[in-house]
Amino acid sequence: MEKRDYIKIRISITRKENWKRICKEKNITLTNLITASVENRILEDERKKILEFIEKQDNIFIKIETNINQIARIANAQKFISSKELNYFQSQLKNITELKEKQNEIITKIYSLIADDS
Results as ranks from 00 to 15, higher is better:
residue 1 M to T: 11
residue 1 M to C: 08
residue 2 E to C: 06
residue 3 K to M: 08
residue 3 K to F: 08
residue 3 K to E: 11
residue 9 I to T: 06
residue 10 R to M: 11
residue 11 I to G: 06
residue 12 S to V: 03
residue 13 I to W: 02
residue 13 I to M: 06
residue 14 T to D: 13
residue 15 R to Q: 10
residue 15 R to G: 00
residue 18 N to H: 12
residue 19 W to M: 15
residue 21 R to P: 00
residue 21 R to T: 11
residue 24 K to R: 13
residue 34 I to H: 01
residue 36 A to H: 10
residue 37 S to H: 09
residue 38 V to C: 13
residue 38 V to E: 09
residue 38 V to M: 08
residue 39 E to L: 15
residue 41 R to N: 12
residue 42 I to T: 10
residue 42 I to F: 06
residue 44 E to M: 04
residue 45 D to L: 03
residue 45 D to Q: 03
residue 47 R to P: 00
residue 47 R to A: 07
residue 47 R to W: 03
residue 48 K to T: 09
residue 49 K to M: 04
residue 49 K to P: 00
residue 50 I to R: 01
residue 52 E to Q: 04
residue 52 E to S: 11
residue 52 E to M: 05
residue 52 E to V: 01
residue 54 I to A: 00
residue 55 E to Q: 09
residue 56 K to D: 07
residue 58 D to T: 13
residue 58 D to N: 15
residue 59 N to C: 02
residue 60 I to G: 01
residue 60 I to D: 12
residue 62 I to N: 12
residue 64 I to T: 05
residue 64 I to Y: 07
residue 65 E to D: 14
residue 65 E to I: 12
residue 66 T to E: 13
residue 66 T to A: 13
residue 66 T to N: 14
residue 67 N to C: 06
residue 67 N to L: 12
residue 68 I to H: 06
residue 69 N to M: 11
residue 70 Q to L: 10
residue 71 I to C: 04
residue 71 I to A: 09
residue 74 I to N: 04
residue 75 A to T: 02
residue 76 N to D: 09
residue 76 N to K: 09
residue 76 N to M: 07
residue 76 N to C: 03
residue 77 A to S: 10
residue 78 Q to M: 10
residue 79 K to N: 12
residue 80 F to K: 10
residue 80 F to W: 12
residue 80 F to L: 05
residue 82 S to P: 04
residue 83 S to P: 00
residue 83 S to Y: 01
residue 84 K to N: 09
residue 88 Y to K: 12
residue 89 F to R: 03
residue 90 Q to D: 09
residue 90 Q to A: 06
residue 90 Q to W: 01
residue 90 Q to M: 09
residue 91 S to W: 07
residue 91 S to N: 14
residue 92 Q to M: 15
residue 93 L to Y: 07
residue 94 K to D: 14
residue 95 N to R: 14
residue 97 T to F: 14
residue 98 E to H: 14
residue 102 K to W: 06
residue 102 K to R: 15
residue 105 E to V: 03
residue 106 I to L: 13
residue 106 I to Y: 04
residue 107 I to W: 05
residue 107 I to A: 03
residue 108 T to Y: 13
residue 110 I to C: 07
residue 111 Y to W: 12
residue 113 L to M: 14
residue 117 D to H: 04
residue 117 D to R: 05
residue 117 D to C: 15
residue 118 S to N: 11
